[in-house]
């Protein structure tokens, strides 16, 4: 187990390195650098602040070779936890992002739970009662869930909620609670709002997972060890949960690895539609105005956290399945 852990941690290093390079390339992609634009703006406004400009230029190594810029950028992040400043808002990136990142990952993790708690029983039912009415219904909704893009579902739900239930839509709390300190009432209000993004983001993932669970379980249901368990005199329900479901769960757990990135992605796009105080709207805004250190930092952190999530899922899998541990 320790060797496995070590190997997985080692694998992470090149991945993280690639993530940082990719992010850096994205930051560099727009032509010119933001300081040029800033200087032009300042010039127009009649403000001359060469000293500040020069300091910024120095800090980010602008105008120097690429690898120097990359090195300076990474040095700031790794050694000082300094992600640079948002040029547009002129405040450190650190001040802007952490709250929103916490919400993004909070919602993503809640969505993951939602997916598990819906996909597991439905998937099992679908496999055990193959070709039953329930199976067809589950399959149909599964396909529908996969076919509706997140943002479209978000729009439809908002429309329905507004038109037929008169519910205020968008945001995580009602407007009157926006700047209030946390209280029981605000928490309840949060619960009334947060289910919608969770449902919207989770639908496609749940649909996919139901299909995976069904297929996996169907693979296992007719294995000889199931017959053995039956021949031992176990009841169908007992043996179902103890043997085939237990084995079919492995790929289920490993899905954290691939589903987490899609959840984070989905959360970002749904947040834009539903106007949630998470990474999505901020990232979109930063990309549109080319506030590249802000955007880059968010892409970097979201990616790194996702990679870590994948690692956790791998470890969990090894913990659950002895066969992987001993490989």
């Amino acid at each position: 187990m320790r060797g496995f852990l070590l190997r997985r941690l080692l694998y992470m290093i090149p991945t993280l390195f690639l993530v940082s390079i990719t992010t850096f390339i994205i930051i560099q992609l727009p032509p010119g650098d933001y300081l040029d634009a800033l200087a032009a703006d300042m010039g127009e406004a009649g403000v001359e602040n060469t000293a500040v400009m020069e300091a910024l230029r120095q800090q980010y190594g602008l105008g120097q070779p690429m690898y120097v810029q990359y090195f300076k950028w990474m040095k700031g992040i790794l050694l000082e936890g300094n992600f640079g400043i948002s040029f547009e808002k002129n405040v450190p990136v650190n001040d802007l992002i952490w709250d929103r990142l916490a919400w993004t990952f909070g919602i993503s993790i809640l969505t993951l739970m939602f997916i598990w708690f819906t996909a597991l029983p439905i998937g099992i039912y679908s496999a055990v009662r193959k070709y039953s009415v329930g199976d067809y219904v589950a399959t149909f909704f599964g396909f529908l869930g996969l076919a509706i893009p997140n943002f479209l579902l978000a729009l439809v739900m908002m429309y329905v909620a507004f038109k037929y239930f008169g519910q205020s839509v968008g945001g995580l709390v009602s407007p009157e609670y926006l700047n209030q300190p946390w209280s029981w009432a605000k928490f309840v209000d949060l619960l009334q709002h947060i289910w919608m993004p969770i449902f919207v983001v989770g639908t496609s993932g749940a649909a996919a997972l139901i299909r995976i669970m069904r297929a996996n379980l169907l693979d296992e249901l007719y294995r000889p060890y199931v017959v053995t368990a039956r021949a031992k005199g176990m009841s169908e329900f007992q043996l179902l949960l103890r043997y085939p479901v237990r084995v079919a769960l492995n790929p289920f757990i490993s899905t954290i690895g691939w589903i987490l990135p899609t959840l984070v992605s989905g959360e970002i796009i749904v947040a834009v539609v539903m106007n949630l105080p998470t990474t999505g709207p901020l990232l979109l805004r930063a990309l549109l105005v080319q506030d590249m250190y802000l955007a880059g930092s968010m892409i970097l952190i979201v990616s790194v956290l996702t990679v870590i999530g994948t690692l956790i899922s791998d470890l969990l899998l090894a913990w659950v399945d002895p066969r992987i541990r001993y490989q």
Binding site: P224, Y243, V320, P322
Partner: peptide, 20 residues
């Protein structure tokens, strides 16, 4: 099953639960 009449199978490789 298992108490009065028990059964063993052809494939010892796959007839036991793999991860128990």
């Amino acid at each position: 099953r298992g108490s009065d009449i028990a059964m063993i199978f052809q494939e010892p490789m796959t007839s036991l639960g793999p991860i128990q």
